[in-house]
Design a protein around this nucleic acid. Sequence first.
DNA 1: ATCGCCTCAAAGATATGACGTATTCAAGTG
DNA 2: CACTTGAATACGTCATATCTTTGAGGCGAT
Lengths: 231, 231
Amino acid sequence: MEIQGLPGRLLDELGPAIASGELPEGSVLRGEELEQRFGVSRTVVREAVRVLEGMRMVASRRRVGITVLPKSLWDVFDPMVIRWRLAGADRPAQLRSLGSLRMAVEPAAAALAATHATDDDRRELSSLAVELTVAARDADLTTFLRHDIAFHALVLRASGNEMFAHLGDTVGAVLTGRTEYHLMPHQPEPYAIRLHREVADAICSGHAEEAEQAMRTIVTGALEELNQQLG
Amino acid sequence: MEIQGLPGRLLDELGPAIASGELPEGSVLRGEELEQRFGVSRTVVREAVRVLEGMRMVASRRRVGITVLPKSLWDVFDPMVIRWRLAGADRPAQLRSLGSLRMAVEPAAAALAATHATDDDRRELSSLAVELTVAARDADLTTFLRHDIAFHALVLRASGNEMFAHLGDTVGAVLTGRTEYHLMPHQPEPYAIRLHREVADAICSGHAEEAEQAMRTIVTGALEELNQQLG
DNA sequence: ATCGCCTCAAAGATATGACGTATTCAAGTG
DNA sequence: CACTTGAATACGTCATATCTTTGAGGCGAT
């Protein structure tokens, strides 16, 4: 899913280092230094740096070196950047940002899905809502998480908006992180389950307003839970 | 703002070609072929391809070549991808997607801005609203556009959410395109101007609900206008 | 005829040496 | 002190060599 080969491995070192602030804004790296530090050739270093440059995390300038750019310039929607930030010291800020984004996008996506979803989408959505309920009743958190992710991703995809659809993986990462962070404490709240069924039902029956409201309630809950945890 | 040097120029050729569908999904390019076609070295081709790979528009595989990936995999939030799509045959679809995205994000951003904006933000917002009114009265579309872009970007930035803030440039591109597409017909509608002042006032006085509603009305109008134009 | 294994070649992946070029910094000059 | 100029530096580009992976076709056995 990511970039392969040696440049990919270099990226997995440099990206997180920059995203976590270990290499703060303004840091300057030299290509040759990277070659030695990671034991790779110029070719590899240059390609990795180019990719970072493509996501505007660094800028390469002659006679200066490779400079880490301020976070405000980064392509914060790039899945790699999101992943790196979620994995590092920037995790709280990234979760907050994603929380607001979900708050804006998911209700809108649910509303759109109510009018744009295909019949297959609706069937699968219904099915997922049921499986979600079952997994919750059985207190099977792993299965629950898998279906929860699939549920949200499906709503986003069924909205018919390719940009919304693309947020599916990111939302999935947030949900996964939440479950991990909880360290699997108690079973999912019955109220949240009911809301998921409500979303599914509303979308299946074409009630945009209702789908939007139910989804808004879900995401609001997640956001409150997040704020509570992060202080 | 983009990638510099020869790889950058190569990107400006390949990116639009892929985004426009001129190189459809599944097309296979060979590195050597690109070297010859564009008269550049292996190094340059590889770096450009790596960047495209980073935005998941192509995948490079041994013994096969460089394959154009399906659009559903592209990083549709990457500013470059958005720009390329807006410039080419995919423009209508991209505008529709962005329309829905604005519809979801901008009202939410306005609501957040009402509680998160700094005093400077509020002052500048007020000021922009006035200048917007003046430019509209003078039927100075160029100035109007500039301030309109600044206005929306400022609201997004003042929301305090870095991801929202990052959509400022993209919204700006949409607004620019809209004005160009109109071929500068008539002056901006007084109603829309009033709504912008309303957003500014609501944010300045901390009325989140009101700001959100006014912004929603603005974006709804833009979306309707878009749907009318695209059929 | 089909399946599985083997070999070969195609194309990218990586390393390296050479040279070009812009840019910074500082020495030198008025 | 301001301006000019030159040299050092680090990236940019090209060319070449070698390695690695992998798809396709051949070959034989079942």
